[in-house]
């Protein structure tokens, strides 16, 4: 309610998206470092595929999480609703990211992962565009 009175809805959306991006980016980098240091036998065969996957996965996850969080913000049972609502929306993203990560670990060439990246970019564009168009309505109701 207070935020309604100090900024435009899209300013709030992009502010929250930016926060989620920074948070998820930091968490992903931290997780990768832990994996490389402590998981025996975990080696990345193609760092370019791995880096692009991390980047696109973080962008997609942050974008989807932001709009899902906005949808459930006014619900009483946020904790229960979030996984139920987010699982089907995040599933295509997670499956594609897992495939791309597998390719990077196996040391595949960049061309092999282009299909996965196209899916991730499309997902990111669709989710961000829908969020941009719908956020004001979600925010007000």
């Amino acid at each position: 309610m207070t935020l309604h009175l100090i900024a435009r809805p899209l300013t709030i959306y992009f502010g929250k998206l930016l926060f989620n991006l920074i948070l998820l980016g930091a968490l992903n980098i931290f997780t990768v470092i832990l994996y490389l240091l402590f998981v025996t036998g975990f080696t990345v065969g193609n760092y370019l595929i791995f880096s692009v996957t991390i980047l696109l996965g973080t962008l997609g996850l942050a974008s989807a999480s932001t709009i899902i969080a906005a949808i459930i913000a006014k619900a009483n049972t946020k904790g229960t609703l979030y996984p139920v609502l987010s699982f089907p929306i995040l599933l295509p993203l997670l499956l594609t990211v897992i495939n791309a990560t597998k390719l990077s670990v196996e040391g595949a060439v960049f061309g092999d992962a282009v299909g996965e990246f196209q899916v991730l970019i499309s997902y990111l564009v669709v989710i961000t565009a829908i969020s941009y168009l719908l956020f004001e309505s979600i925010w007000k109701e």
């Binding site: 309610m1 207070t2 309604h4 009175l5 100090i6 900024a7 435009r8 809805p9 004001e136």
Partner: peptide
């Protein structure tokens, strides 16, 4: 969307 720049609101449901 720009109403907020021209109005102020005091109400019990406003949370600081």
């Amino acid at each position: 969307v720009d109403f907020f720049t021209h109005l102020g609101l005091v109400s019990p449901y406003l949370q600081l």
